[in-house]
Nucleic acid binder design. Structure first.
Length: 113
DNA sequence: AGATTGACTAACC
DNA sequence: AGGTTAGCCAATC
């Protein structure tokens, strides 16, 4: 592992897209994958996981397609996940009782209409 | 250079 | 409804 390696082009694209997510909204790995013209949401997750850049890149606003939280800082559950949930809540994102994000908070990259 | 892994998804059984 | 399989793609071993 080279934690100090420079970000790859792909990762850079992922970060930029992630930065576009406004506070109080979330997006899915799938949306990011489509936006980056990549058919693998997994690759998106990989990029985010290896770059726990904090609020600079709001990776906490990225959730799974079924609107469950997904992971955070390399773990799919645990204290970091609780943190992720809390961050979103503070930003105004509401959760359903099953722990998923309310779909109304789902951001889509529609820039061009 | 080849095989494995992973913050995923959808399709199957 | 819940577990398994298969596809996906970049990073890592």
């Amino acid at each position: 592992m080279d934690p100090n390696r420079p970000p790859t082009d792909f990762e850079t694209r992922v970060f930029e897209a992630t930065r576009l997510i406004p506070a109080g909204k979330v997006t899915t790995y799938r949306e990011l994958a489509l936006f980056l013209e990549c058919n693998s949401a997994q690759a998106i997750g990989q990029a985010l996981k290896r770059n726990p850049f904090a609020p600079q890149v709001p990776c906490h606003r990225v959730v799974k397609t079924d609107l469950s939280l997904g992971g955070f800082h390399g773990q799919t559950e645990g204290p970091w996940l609780a943190k992720k949930r809390k961050l979103l809540t503070e930003e105004g994102v509401a959760f359903s009782e099953n722990g998923t994000v309310n779909p109304e908070f789902c951001h889509r990259f529609k820039g061009s209409k």
